[in-house]
Design a protein around this nucleic acid. Structure first.
Lengths: 351, 351
DNA sequence: CCGAATAATTTGATCGATCAAAATGGATCG
DNA sequence: CGATCCATTTTGATCGATCAAATTATTCGG
């Protein structure tokens, strides 16, 4: 690789001082237009690029976001996080930010990584995904004053500590709307397949169904099945719901995995038209024409970056300590309708 | 954030010079044990961490790998790349390397990004994924002497330019073995569903089937269907293969999407036991019990890093210009057997 | 046309580490 | 005992940029 030109090289070429070159790059408005043009020409001609490490050393910020990739889940739902990662890379780039990824085994290991990256000034801010009840990372990050935003609301304690900025998707509203829609289109007994409690996201989603299902206490108990995530589990649960004396005539699930299983079971039982709705709008859902509740990841990422860096900036804002402005965002998901509910909704949407 | 200690702080605390502190960290073997221990104690006590940017400025290397995330594919198969990313983050970490991700729209945009990151000394080396025929990135990177390795062999020209280091998975062997195995277990007419030519990976996979299928020219033409990727396409193709006067009694597919469709179609036609094999071992395959050919991503990543950095090092090796040592690796995938082929193989493996 | 105020540019110091070379301290040996 | 050699440690310079303060150029009112 040829030796890269430095500010001094450009300065000499443009007959100005190094600082002026620096100004042309960082605060062009304070440089006279005529000078600016001359310097810019030299920059282009020499192919100058600021040396990122030198700049970071001096300015003491790295403009880099750290993101830990969750351990691979075999489940289908891991795909959401992958989409999140992708969107993050995209939008970070637009703000002139970099994204660095790492993996860790468990929260402690993750904190060790964060500490190392943070202390080495490698990374300015972190994004946490998949928060859980009593998440030790949150308190540690607050304690050590490391700027961060979590994708996932706090569960349990410290529910409205303004120092914890977060973005989340309102799964309850998503499920509620889907259920309402199914009922409005004529389904009278909408069943639900969800995860065992306590599960932050899972409980929210179930609550959405309960609110909109129109069942009384008995009905609520009858028309929901609690099970671990998985295609087989979804299939078994669906068979259960369809074997009732008054079988349900639509099913909403806490995940696409469950929905896929439910859908296959329904087909096997000769009811391929049974409306089934999943959650997360994973590639599988789109591939097999399964309606699913889609998390608005574009907005999630945008909100995350805004909370961290402000509307357009690329400088981290410190952990807030007052209630001056909102420190969190709860976004509403939307139902993507596909074959699996066309019968119910009577529309035709591309798969 | 409290001010971080520097080498000088540690030096003072341990009553040595800054260089000795530096040596303790970078070449402990040249420091007297007694001194080393004292310095180490001071490092631990003060919680010192080298400032990454300062080090990079001086050493002129960033120990950072750049990776472009492909545009999101809606297909199920995108999952392979996600797994790749994950493994890469894991193994890079073990070598003390960092991974920085970015996105781009098309090869040109990607090159612009690469250039920027490279010129800013942000990144030492790049990993390319999803190479294609006449890939412009390859020649550009070679031309500009940017160290890189591609996951994906070169297609078309420059087949054995030693300056192009690559790692790939031998899809042909994978499909061949799966086909052979099916035939050995009693299937006499193994069909194939694959992508239209020309497609580097697709053509290789098909060739594997052709080599092991045992068909004559007529049979080869009859028992393969060419189609775009997709679940619906897989289902349609499978129906076609099963409607033959001599229907096939097993199907191998170029992807899990196709295989999923084929499997569903077979079930719908009352043949749920028809052996179906997919490719990529995506989460869906594991979720629904579909046998699939698994790319050994651990090995792929290990080989990639070895080609770039040597056996254990963390320093990039320049683009090689001679044939001294191998500059590529072709790895063999392995069949993961699940429900979809249990009948054929007579085994019981967990899903 | 002068001096104050403001704009534009330059100079010197610094961020925190490592490199290269010089200095120190012992051990070895004739 | 003194010269030599090796192991260990220290000093001075440097990587490429930006900050803070100083300097020079320009504008404007009276």
């Amino acid at each position: 690789m040829a030796k890269m030109p430095t500010v001094d090289d450009v300065a000499e070429a443009a007959q100005v001082s190094r600082q002026t070159v620096s100004n042309v790059i960082n605060s062009p408005e304070i440089v006279r237009e005529q000078t600016r043009a001359r310097v810019q020409e030299a920059i282009d001609r020499l192919g100058y690029r600021p040396h990122a490490s030198a700049r970071r050393l001096r300015t003491r910020k790295s403009s880099t976001i750290g993101l830990r990739l969750d351990p691979l889940r075999d489940g289908i739902s891991g795909a959401v996080l992958d989409r999140f990662v992708h969107k993050l890379a995209e939008q970070a780039d637009e703000r002139g930010l970099r994204v660095m990824i790492f993996t860790a085994n468990g929260a402690d290991d993750e904190l060790a990584h964060i500490r190392r990256l943070r202390d080495g000034s490698d990374i300015d801010a972190f994004i946490l995904i998949a928060t859980f009840h009593g998440d030790p990372r949150i308190s540690w990050l607050i304690e050590h004053d490391v700027p961060f935003v979590s994708f996932g609301r706090p569960w349990g304690s410290s529910l409205d500590d303004p120092r914890h900025r977060w973005v989340d998707v309102d799964g309850r509203a998503g499920v509620r709307d889907a259920t309402t829609k199914l009922r409005a289109s004529g389904c009278s007994r909408v069943g639900y397949i969800g995860w065992p409690s306590p599960s932050g996201t899972g409980d929210e989603r179930r609550a959405g169904w309960e609110e909109a299902s129109g069942f009384d206490a008995d009905g609520l108990a009858t028309y929901q099945v609690v099970t671990e995530d998985g295609v087989d589990q979804g299939a078994a649960s669906a068979r259960q719901l369809l074997a009732l004396s008054q079988p349900c005539d639509a099913i909403v699930c806490a995940s696409d995995s469950l929905a896929l299983g439910a859908s296959m079971a329904a087909t096997a039982l000769g009811q391929p038209e049974l409306p089934v709705v999943g959650f997360d709008n994973t590639p599988v859902a789109s591939a097999i024409g399964l309606s699913s509740i889609d998390q608005p990841l574009d907005e999630v990422v945008a909100a995350t970056l805004t909370l961290l860096f402000g509307e357009t900036g690329d400088t981290v804002r410190p952990n807030p300590d007052s209630n001056e402005q909102p420190t969190n965002r709860l976004l509403v998901p939307r139902l993507v309708e596909r074959r699996s509910t066309h019968r119910a909704f009577g529309e035709t949407t591309g798969a």
